[in-house]
Design a protein around this nucleic acid. Structure first.
Lengths: 225, 225
DNA sequence: GAGATATGTTCACATAACTTTCACAAGGAA
DNA sequence: TTCCTTGTGAAAGTTATGTGAACATATCTC
């Protein structure tokens, strides 16, 4: 997977540095903007920005304003940083097309998890139907076919398979799977993944072998093509 | 591998000198700070600090405080020095993002080993695919290919080969291998390395010869290219 | 809102895979 | 040769994963 470019907009440089650090560590490329105007300039200059993290409270042009302007031209995912949850409630009243709200102070780890989840979603919607090694995944219909036959998968099973198919050939640790397929607020047993993998494999028949176990590490989807 | 810069923070100058000595000998560049404020100044002045060793008990600003401040802006690895293990337990209750705890008195040798292990971890994610002399190592897929054919390696075997390939042409003592490939809390027989080397060699076929024995010393990976 | 149904999670145990140790063989150094 | 290090195969020990069932939670139906 290529490195996605993320634009961080905040007037406080410390906050920008913090986010930059964490996101860079998580393998994203980060651009920083110190105010709304700069943010708009950077966004319209660089067509490859995959996601924007936007502080609400900024001098001159606030996050709300920046968001409205961008939304006139683009559906790029936007995460809003708000200082109080009351701000958040207020904003949610308007339909600004904001993908997530994160209230300060937040755990950077959590933010990264949300960023990954959103990007996954927005990447997913690019190709609605994918077919690999006899497995056809129709995201719009939320339906999977194996050798042309429809297979009944539960919601989680579908999402798990989707994540596997989006990351073919890549070794995925349980932690990573949890972060991307489960909600960020799930803190249960990672072994639940094993159970889901078991069900997935059995529902997939002989294609179940595509889900390889990487002992001591996690799982990997590999259709061998 | 370039010399990594390490910041040692302790109010006792004897302790700083001791650490400085050992780390310098192990080929690190060392900066010293005598208190928390100085530490913060040095850290934010010098963007190249790769790791911080931090004493908990210090006058004015304690290690706990320093850590929290740094964590607001940076994910640099931090090793905490604690006087009693009770302190350690207490600290672990908070999620400060500390990478390691070392309880005084400690063996400097052990500390150096931990430093190396942590730095290796944080460096590891640089090049995802490496190929040398017909051996292709795909870290993302956690898979090794020899002459294009996939080879099944266990977790430890993979890590061992990874370490060898990251240190091509360098003679590696068993001690060093243990410190870097095994966990620091492994105190078993170093001969387990021999067994793993044997398995690796046999799984690598004629490429097994790349792992040379350095009699009386250890091993070396050398693809002769 | 109660009961039924489907889905998701946890648990305990079986199984499989891996790691370490051991004992002895083989090989290099003095 | 003699001492010490390394190679090797197999046994013993350890840990991770597979699996079925119980339990919990959410969803649907009436």
């Amino acid at each position: 997977m290529e490195r996605s470019k993320i634009l961080v907009v905040d007037d406080e440089s410390r906050m920008r540095k913090l986010l930059n650090d964490f996101l860079t560590r998580s393998n994203f490329t980060v651009l920083e903007a110190g105010d709304g105007e700069e943010a708009l300039d950077m966004f319209f200059d660089d067509k490859e920005i995959a996601l924007i993290i936007l502080d609400v409270m900024m001098p001159k042009m606030d996050g709300y304003e920046v968001c409205r302007t961008i939304r006139k031209y683009s559906q790029v995912p936007i995460i809003m940083l708000t200082a109080k949850s009351s701000e958040r409630d207020e904003l949610q009243g308007f339909d600004l097309g904001i993908d997530e709200y994160v209230t300060k102070p937040f755990s950077p780890k959590l933010l990264v998890a949300r960023v990954e989840a959103i990007l996954r979603r927005s990447r997913a919607s690019q190709a609605d139907v994918v077919e690999v090694g006899g497995i056809r995944m129709d995201r719009a219909a939320h339906q999977v076919y194996i050798d042309g036959e429809p297979v009944e998968l539960s919601y989680k099973e579908f999402e798990l398979l989707e994540y596997f198919m989006d990351n073919q050939g890549i070794a995925l640790s349980r932690e990573k799977i949890l972060n991307n397929v489960w909600n960020y607020d799930y803190f249960g047993d990672a072994r639940t993944i094993d159970t889901h993998v078991k069900k997935l494999r059995s529902k997939m028949g002989d294609k179940g072998e595509y889900i390889k176990t990487i002992w001591g590490m996690g799982y990997k989807f590999d259709a061998g093509v």
